[in-house]
Amino acid sequence: MSEGGAKPWDTDPILRVEHLTMRFGGLTAVDDVSFSVGREDITALIGPNGAGKTTVFNCITGFYKPTEGMLTLDADGGDPFYLERLSDYEINADARVARTFQNIRLFPGMTVLENLLVAQHNVLSRASGFSFGAILGLGQFGRAEQDAVDLARSWLDRIGLLPRADEAAGGLPYGDQRRLEIARAMCTRPKLLCLDEPAAGLNARESEALNALLQTIRETDGTAIFLIEHDMSVVMRISDHVIVLDYGKKIADGTPSDVRNDPHVIAAYLGVSDEDAQALEARP
């Protein structure tokens, strides 16, 4: 692990994970993991299968309650949110953390546009007077809905799905579904976007398009991105900060080039001989 000097993501992180531990019965899936996610970074969480990456993710997005640890989301200005105390929907609605899923979870029987409108539910629901107003024709619902459609339209334009806006989401090709899920998460106007294996199942060209999309999200929308990924071409090319987990423990944390040369990481991914393993364990 690289010591020496505060890393940029430690000085002003959007998310600080401290001593996160998650146990399922006797199994410790995540063991005392601490790291920070920088405000303007693309942060990648990598590790071999079963390392506990998705568990960390589910703790951050509220789908699991961590056994121990503290998750502080410091959105600019206001009071920090302690994510371990919020329920899953509050983490999106209040703390503004959006996520996607490893196996895509769209609303397959609804159109692409409807998927993006459901994502703007809380804004629209308030504008509709929680439906009581809008059902009587009161309030500004029409205006709010038009704004929501415009936002959805701009996202569809960015992911190249505008011509298919009125088709069922379940009928889209796999790559389009992946991008739609990201656009849907972005329609909740998040401060932090968590992506669980966004490049899984994509071909080289689609993966390239995904990289470009993620970079524009970071640059133009000012949303921090935290992703789990197996595809090293994505990780090494776009991320500013890489965290490596193995058997529930953090084994490396640094820039992509730091991590690439870290002997622990090489050992975790490629395996090592017994003597080397002992030598590695002897190191601090």
């Binding site: 997005t61 789908f63 899953d88 929907y89 509050e90 999106n92 609605a93 959006a98 996520r99 899923f101 979870r105 769209l106 609303f107 459901v118 994502a119 539910h121 809380n122 849907r184 998460a185 909740t188």
Partner: peptide, 8 residues
Amino acid sequence: IACRSLGI
């Protein structure tokens, strides 16, 4: 589950 992830 997707609904909850979208803040509903």
